[in-house]
């Protein structure tokens, strides 16, 4: 994975790089001494998984850089690193993934990397399914929900639907811990696409409404709440 570090202090860049190298994975790490130099290398940024940005830099500060990166590469994870906790709020405004304190990096970096890598893995996870339409490699995140229709199960994605002759229980097992919740014998929902759950009805971001049985309602809400906590 490609990582970028942007900090106007060489010592701080070096310290962060050392911690990332000690994390134990094979990263390609590039360092930048200013926001301007980082923004000039957008081609590399587009290929990056994570960008570490110091907020307080002379010239273009980290928040401004973060805004620019997010506008051009919305999927890149930005981690704001600073000595000042005060910027946590501003960090969220630029949709930074995390906010770390410089003097605490040894403690917090591993935890932060574990979480972000898990998120990246989740976003990029691809599974192959033997659909009626043929073998298709689907990004798990693209599956909105799966519904049973007579003797087969139908995968609903943003673009199209796919049919598969496989039991819902097996599909639930295959997609375990990937953010799916079984709300009904006939429905397996990707929680990323849930808009809200209330009064025994689940509304998806696509506008679809699905009834949630009373017997499963509290468990579905519980799983969704926990999902929103880590999302």
């Amino acid at each position: 994975m490609k990582i970028a570090i942007c900090d106007d202090r060489e010592d701080d860049r070096g310290a962060l790089k050392a911690l990332l190298e000690a994390y134990g994975q094979d990263f390609e790490i590039r360092e930048y001494g200013s926001g301007e130099s980082l923004c000039k290398d957008m081609d590399y940024i587009r290929e990056c998984g994570i960008v570490f940005l110091d907020i307080n830099m002379d010239g273009m500060d980290g928040l401004e850089v973060a805004r620019q990166i997010k506008s051009e590469c919305p999927k890149v994870h930005i981690v704001l690193v600073t000595a000042y906790v005060n910027y946590a709020l501003d960090g969220y405004k630029v949709k930074a993934s995390r906010f770390l304190l410089k003097d605490d990096l040894e403690q917090t970096l591993q935890e932060c990397m574990d979480d972000i890598l898990r998120e990246i893995l989740q976003e990029e996870r691809v599974m192959e399914f033997g659909f009626v339409e043929g073998n298709v490699r689907l990004k798990v995140d693209d599956i909105i929900y799966i519904e049973t229709n007579k003797h087969k199960n139908v995968f609903y994605t943003q673009e199209q639907t796919f049919n598969i002759y496989k039991k819902m229980d097996e599909l639930e097992e295959d997609l375990k811990e990937m953010g799916f919740v079984r709300i009904h014998q006939s429905f397996l929902i990707n929680m990323k696409y849930i808009e809200r759950i209330s009064s025994y009805v689940m509304v998806l971001t696509t506008g679809k409404e699905i009834s949630v049985p009373k017997s499963r309602y509290s468990e579905v809400k519980r799983q969704y709440t926990l999902f929103k906590g880590v999302e």
Partner: peptide, 18 residues
């Protein structure tokens, strides 16, 4: 709580909004 935690060697990672 942040200061209490720091005083006991506990770190915090924040994602906070308005």
């Amino acid at each position: 709580k942040f200061h209490v935690a720091r005083g006991q060697g506990i770190s915090m990672i924040f994602r906070v909004g308005d």
